[in-house]
């Protein structure tokens, strides 16, 4: 039973952490949404802002689950860019936009030799071959 009490305590701490993250996340969402609305000369009512940030938070949690499952399916413990692109595979435009962002990131930060050997050679090959096809 002592184990049960301990996990209750953990759960409480977990909730507090979730709330804090949720608030930080809400602030980021609001600034992004407001910037986008301003571009359209629009205002957003506050409850809608809260809705959008709650929606985006749920989406993030779902994304985390998806990415974990994708990585596990690939026999990895670490999520990579291919997993993120895979999570958007139902929407071709979105996947293509993520793919180009991914290539931009690669160009911007040429990885160190050590890392390159370890992780990205396979990744590089995969993305370039896909690009050739499309």
């Amino acid at each position: 039973m002592e184990g049960g009490g301990e996990s209750d305590f953990e759960r409480e701490e977990d909730d507090a952490a979730t709330e804090l993250l949720r608030d930080r996340f809400r602030l980021s969402t609001i600034s992004i949404a407001e910037a986008q609305a301003k571009r359209n000369n629009m205002e957003i009512s506050q409850p809608i802002m809260a809705c959008i940030s709650e929606l985006a938070f749920k989406f993030t949690e779902q994304l985390a689950k998806d990415l974990e499952l994708f990585a596990q399916h690939g026999g990895r413990k670490s999520v990579n860019m291919e997993d993120v692109i895979l999570s958007a595979h139902r929407n071709e435009h979105l996947a293509a936009s993520l793919r180009s962002f991914c290539n931009e990131l690669k160009v911007k930060e040429p990885q160190t030799e050590r890392k390159r050997k370890k992780t990205s050679r396979k990744e590089d090959k995969a993305t370039t071959s896909v690009l050739h096809i499309s």
Binding site: F59, E68, A71, S78, V79, V84, S87, L98, F101, L105
Partner: peptide, 16 residues
């Protein structure tokens, strides 16, 4: 599970 830095940036872009 863990995530690499670029995957996180890409996730941020997806959320944005």
């Amino acid at each position: 599970t863990t995530a690499n830095a670029n995957a996180l940036k890409l996730s941020c872009e997806l959320l944005r």
